[in-house]
């Protein structure tokens, strides 16, 4: 699904990622954990293609294609979804309209038939219901006036509707209460299947109680310094990042 080799990247001329190697096979969920400032968010932005995040070396292949050469919308159409740490507000842009425009743009890019308004309404309502989200979330403007928790739930709703192959969750758990955390986890778990993968970026272990990862990687100083099974997350929780970082140094 995703194969990253020797990836280095800088922001404003400052090197943040210093050589990332990471393989996420089809159907697996990987967690990336790490202290603040370790480069977690930079990795997610680089993979999604955000301006200002300059790739200085290495490669990233997505289903064999050169991910780094693609425009952001092409990556989305190819099946990459980024759940933002800080979802962006779009004043005056209706959530449902936004999602339908996005979904149809992706379908068009993949040569699939577009959904008409009625088909989309059915789909979006069903997904909202499944995630126990109120219908009116779809009628409101994208993230405008949403609480922190609502914004994250909206990201999960978008993910459910857009059905990506690879979902990257950038600290989606931050600022969530336990109920919202479960909804996020349900959203990711519902997506799990032999042909879909997820990269869960988080600072804390607690989200991983609900989304059990196949692999856990520790990112520090722009490098993956340790990888292991789900038990690694528990170890980090117990002993803190400092000891792992010190050990690797």
């Amino acid at each position: 699904m995703l194969k990253i080799e020797g990836l280095t990247a800088s922001v404003d001329g400052k090197a943040i990622l210093k050589g990332i190697d990471l393989v996420v096979p089809d159907g697996e969920v990987h967690a990336i954990m790490g202290p603040n400032g370790s480069g977690k968010s930079t990795l997610s932005y680089v993979l999604a293609g955000r301006d200002g995040y300059e790739v200085t070396g290495g490669s990233a292949a997505f289903d064999g294609a050169d991910l780094l050469a693609m425009e952001p919308e092409a990556r989305a159409a190819a099946g990459l979804f980024l759940a933002f740490q800080y979802p962006v507000e779009l004043p005056g842009v209706n959530n449902a309209n936004f999602l339908r425009t996005a979904l149809n743009a992706q379908r068009r890019a993949r040569g699939e038939a577009e959904l008409d308004a009625v088909q989309f309404l059915k789909l979006s309502r069903a997904e909202a219901k499944r995630l126990s989200m109120p219908d009116d979330m779809l009628k409101r403007n994208v993230n405008v006036g949403f609480s922190g928790g609502e914004k994250k739930r909206n990201e999960v709703l978008q993910m459910a509707i857009l059905r990506p192959k690879l979902a990257i969750l950038d600290e989606t758990d931050s600022g969530l209460d336990i109920d919202a955390l479960k909804i996020v986890a349900d959203g990711v778990n519902a997506l799990r299947g032999p042909a879909t993968s997820a990269l869960v970026i988080t600072h804390y272990q607690r989200l991983l109680d609900y989304i059990v990862p196949d692999r856990v990687h520790v990112l520090a100083g722009g490098r993956i310094i340790r990888s292991g099974g789900p038990e690694l997350a528990l170890e980090l929780e117990a002993s803190g990042y400092a000891s792992v970082v010190a050990e690797a140094a």
Partner: peptide
Amino acid sequence: IAEDQLFYCRQRGLSEEDAVGLIVNGFCKD
């Protein structure tokens, strides 16, 4: 039009032009 708004739309699969159109029409909705 904030760079992060454009990027957000493009991450969801919209082309840059469609994203601009969407944001401007949202701005003018009232």
